[in-house]
Simulated scan of single mutants.
Amino acid sequence: MELRWMEDFIALARTQHFSRAAEEQNVTQPTFSRRIKLLEEEMGTTLINRQTLPLTLTPAGAEFLKLCEQVTERVRLTRERLNRMTSEQASRLLIAAPQSLLTHFLPHWMTNQPQLARLQPYLRATGWLIADYFQGLACGECDLALCYWPVGRCDIDIDVSEYQYLIVGREHLIPCSAPGEHGAPRFRLPGTKRHSQAWIAYHPRGLLSAAIASHLARMPEATHLTVLNETIQTNNVKELVSLGYGLGWLPARVAKPALDQGQLVRAGDERWDIPLQLRLYRLAGTQRYELDKLWSQIASSSEVTPGASE
């Protein structure tokens, strides 16, 4: 049984006339009459009393009309709900970001800018390396990518010429260590040849690893570090550093609570801090109304700095 047959039956019960009901349903009368006949055959009984003018329903037809009205109304409400869901989904924009930015930056940023309410964090991206973000943008897996970006010169083997970005914030990496005796850092930069310092490092193909390496290469004094562990997640670095396994660089937003409480201390002075930008990337040349609108709103904010494709 087709839904349109039920709609035909409701129209016929309302108009009490085959021709008017057929016109209302935008079909010819023969086609309409045939569909009503098929409906009666499907139900196994006569639903229309054709001997009266205007037409009337048989007792079975009156009962069947209740079912038709219930079914078509539920279908209508469900269709409206699905359309709203589709519309809402179309207006949502997936933003990929490292776990530390999802936790320590994105909620505050979204709260202060109401237009960002349509953003939906793409949690799968918390395990991505920097190249994965641009691949995700290129294949449409996400609409925006929020990532750390070094301020100084840094060798990053990624072609970003097809992407646009906005600078939406600032950050810096702080070298941290668990406190030792009298609150002094258990591990301290720069280390010596005889006493190399244990280092909880980031994944070598990650952007933070490249930023740290570039910064250390520009420092006038050599560092002596021994990598004990490499990880993607900033929280993993913080956990291992807090447990006293070595020193590590942490974003200031991540490190500040532990530094304030004395759970972590600086492993070096400000010379070892590494400035970063918080960049929001999108694939250039894409045309999507919701994304274009949001991009323009963010770009017009006094808190951001537009950047051209590199």
Rank of each mutant, 00 (worst) to 15 (best):
R4W: 05
D8G: 04
R14V: 09
T15L: 12
S19T: 14
A22R: 06
E24M: 12
Q25H: 00
V27E: 10
V27H: 03
Q29A: 05
P30G: 10
T31W: 00
R34T: 05
I36R: 01
K37G: 09
K37A: 14
T45A: 11
N49T: 08
R50Q: 13
Q51T: 08
T56S: 12
P59K: 09
L65K: 02
K66E: 15
E69W: 02
R76W: 02
T78M: 14
N83D: 15
Q89N: 12
Q89W: 07
A90G: 04
A97V: 08
S100F: 03
L101S: 14
P107T: 04
T111E: 15
T111Y: 03
L119G: 07
L119R: 09
R124D: 08
R124C: 04
T126F: 01
D132I: 09
G140Y: 04
E141H: 04
V151A: 15
G152F: 07
C154I: 04
D159H: 02
S161C: 03
S161M: 03
E162R: 05
Q164C: 07
H172C: 11
S177F: 05
L189P: 04
R194G: 07
A198S: 14
A201V: 06
P204K: 08
R205V: 00
R205Q: 15
G206I: 05
L208D: 07
L208R: 09
S209M: 08
S209V: 03
A211P: 02
L216F: 14
A217P: 00
P220A: 00
A222I: 02
A222S: 14
L225D: 08
E230H: 03
T231H: 03
I232T: 13
I232S: 01
T234M: 12
T234N: 09
N236L: 04
K238D: 06
S242I: 00
L243F: 01
G244H: 01
R253M: 12
A255P: 11
Q263P: 00
R266A: 14
A267C: 06
G268M: 11
R271Y: 06
W272D: 11
L276D: 11
Q277H: 11
L278D: 11
R279I: 10
L280Q: 12
A284I: 01
G285A: 06
T286K: 06
E290V: 08
D292V: 05
K293P: 00
K293C: 13
S296R: 12
A299G: 04
S300K: 09
P306K: 06
G307F: 00
A308H: 04
E310G: 12
